[in-house]
């Protein structure tokens, strides 16, 4: 960990002033990913601006019937928030599928969105990695890549985004409120994260001097028919090999609206709106779900150790959509898969 300066931001304007003043400076809130990476010498910010005490901890109802979640609401508070539990149980479930109780107590909503990949090579400064050191190469591509991406990869990078929460937010069509030197803007969730392309060092479309202030959920919460199904190498406290956020609105067994997002398979939470559109108006059965799975995985491509993820994802999609349709979402504590 390099020597860095530390200052606490007094308010949002102060935070933006401070970040603009020093190139490479970073915000710190929960710290659970940034400090980890600083200890590995992967992140080397000369200055940390502590935003953890800014007043961004509220969960409020919006005029449009949705919710506005302050960027500093801790993950555990969000998962257990009565409005989230009642109206957005998919989000609650996804949050509880991730990390540990301690980390969820620390991690912030905004920070969760900005967490970086768990690719072994990204973490190990002794190895090549285009995301960490642009131009150094991607060792994962021909190396140990069991945990890597099958969708949206590039020659430069096959890393995955590690968040569970983001998979649910993607499925729920959340929006991300951002403040910057020239005012605020709102991004759709799909526009927040990037595919690696030739610039894998950039995870998101945020500018270096912007800050996430809130995440907004639309009214539609899919509280009746949803499931977050996470498949991993042990039964808890592990990153997803594949995870599925499934949400349906049903009318007499017919799908009125469908959402399907995947985690652990790409550089960002993976959605495919045409796969979802194809489910609308169809009966909520395995044949429909299988077509959706085939559609979302059409361009999937495996590497030496992770090709299994394609078939695993297909099956997990079928299962999660079936759970959602049946109104029997996956429990995050009872480990038997429903």
């Amino acid at each position: 960990m390099i020597n860095f300066q530390y200052a606490r931001a007094t308010d949002l304007a102060d935070a933006l002033r401070q970040i603009a003043a020093e190139p490479g400076a970073k915000f710190i809130a929960g710290g659970t990913n940034l400090i980890d990476l600083m200890k590995e010498d992967v992140e080397r910010p000369p200055r940390l601006i502590d935003i953890s005490r800014l007043p961004l901890r509220e969960v409020e109802q919006t005029r449009h019937g949705g919710l506005l979640i302050g960027a500093l609401v801790p993950n555990s508070d969000l998962a257990y928030h009565p409005l989230i539990e009642r109206h957005y149980p998919l989000l609650a479930s996804a949050i509880l599928a991730g990390a540990s109780a301690q980390l969820r107590n620390m991690a912030s909503t905004g920070g969760n969105l900005l967490q970086r990949t768990r690719c072994y090579y990204f973490y190990d400064t002794a190895t090549p990695c285009n995301k960490r050191t642009p131009g150094s190469g991607c060792a994962a591509r021909y190396g140990v890549n069991r945990i890597h991406a099958i969708l949206g990869t590039s020659d430069a990078c096959i890393a995955t985004h590690p968040s569970d929460m983001c998979v649910a937010l993607a499925a729920l069509d959340a929006q991300v409120h951002v403040a910057g030197p020239s005012g605020g803007r709102t991004l759709t969730f799909a526009d927040l994260h990037r595919l690696p392309g030739t610039t894998p060092e950039r995870d998101t479309n945020l500018a270096a001097d912007e800050i996430i202030t809130a995440v907004e959920l639309p009214e539609r919460g899919f509280a009746a028919n949803y499931s977050y199904l996470k498949i991993r190498d042990r039964l808890s406290y592990a990153f997803a090999l594949v995870s599925v956020a499934a949400a349906l609105e049903l009318e007499h067994g017919t799908i009125k609206e469908a959402r399907l997002a995947l985690g652990g398979v790409a550089h960002k939470p993976w959605r495919n709106v045409s796969a979802e559109a194809a489910m609308r108006g169809e009966p909520a059965n395995r044949a429909t779900f299988a077509r959706a799975a085939d559609a979302i995985l059409r361009d999937a491509k495996g590497f030496a150790h992770n090709a299994f993820k394609i078939e695993l994802a297909r099956r997990a999609i079928l299962r999660a959509l079936s759970q959602a349709a049946a109104g029997t979402p996956q429990s995050q504590s009872v480990k038997k898969i429903r």
Partner: peptide, 19 residues
């Protein structure tokens, strides 16, 4: 390294003391 900070359990290795 779990400790309770303001009554909540956290990993004390993942936060700076100044915070």
């Amino acid at each position: 390294c779990t400790v309770l900070v303001d009554g909540r359990r956290i990993n004390s290795c993942m936060t700076f003391a100044v915070m």
